[in-house]
């Protein structure tokens, strides 16, 4: 899922400096699961902002709401009225939700209350790790199910590099060396042959480097009905 974390309160405060009535809009999907932008966090942020702005001698109004999925228009329709009434919206969704809101309500500015950080997985209570970079050309079938693109600091296709020590990455001693994990896994599976093959240069055009990506599924698109003769 998409992992995000809340921006520092001061940054949010400075973003809303020029606005009076602020709608704080959460999202019920990924960011709820990772405790960054669900209903509960909307409430916490609203309280914090009420207190902080009052201490600054301001009299701002904060309205709270959360939609099920901020990245789809139909869910945001439910709060259209609240959006109209507000001077500005702080979205506690990922960057996709923020952009959806700005597109859907062009007359209103929606600001990001979170930093969208990565695609990842909760590994223990309160800890999330990156697992995917959406590179568009999955290599997990070559690497025993461990992603070197997102989990190796250099995104190497032939690791581990000389900085792999005791199973850890030289960049951060708390982080596992992805290629050491791949080695252990392939060894256990009896498939080290996968690791000693030379791989061609990766096609990064399928990643973001080819420009903004789009998927079109003709089979899913609504067909235009031919007018009756």
């Amino acid at each position: 899922m998409i992992i995000a974390e809340q921006k520092p309160l001061d940054e949010i405060k400075s973003m809303i400096a020029d606005y009076q009535k602020v709608l704080i809009l959460g999202c019920g999907t990924c960011v709820t699961i990772c405790f960054a932008g669900g209903e509960k966090e909307v409430g916490t942020l609203a309280s914090a902002l009420r207190m902080a702005t009052k201490l600054d001698g301001q009299n701002k109004e904060f309205v709270e709401a959360t939609v099920q999925r901020q990245c789809e228009y139909e869910f945001n329709e439910e709060v259209a009225e609240l959006v109209q009434e507000a001077d500005v919206v702080i979205s506690l969704a990922c960057g996709i939700g923020v952009q959806t809101m700005n597109e859907q309500f062009p007359g209103k500015l929606t600001l990001p209350g979170l930093n969208t950080t990565f695609l990842g997985q909760p590994v223990e209570q309160g800890v999330w790790d990156e697992r995917c970079q959406a590179c568009g050309d999955c290599v997990l079938y070559l690497t025993g199910g461990v992603c070197p693109i997102s989990r190796c600091a250099k995104s190497l296709l032939h690791g581990p590099c000389g900085g792999s020590q005791n199973g850890k990455c030289e960049v951060d001693p708390e982080t596992d060396c992805a290629w050491h994990l791949i080695y252990d896994r392939l060894k256990a599976l009896g498939r080290l042959d996968l690791m000693t093959k030379l791989r061609p240069a990766k096609d990064w055009s399928k990643a973001r480097h080819g420009g903004t990506r789009r998927i079109v599924r003709e089979d899913l698109k609504l067909q235009e009905v031919a007018p009756r003769a």
């Binding site: 600091a153 250099k154 032939h158 590099c161 900085g163 791989r199 061609p200």
Partner: peptide, 24 residues
């Protein structure tokens, strides 16, 4: 060479490339 990660240098906030790795 692959190269030392930029974290260890004097521009730790830079973006790295690694279009290819040393093998490639």
């Amino acid at each position: 060479l692959s190269g030392d990660h930029q974290k260890f240098g004097n521009h730790p906030t830079s973006k790295n490339v690694y279009d290819l790795d040393s093998m490639q």
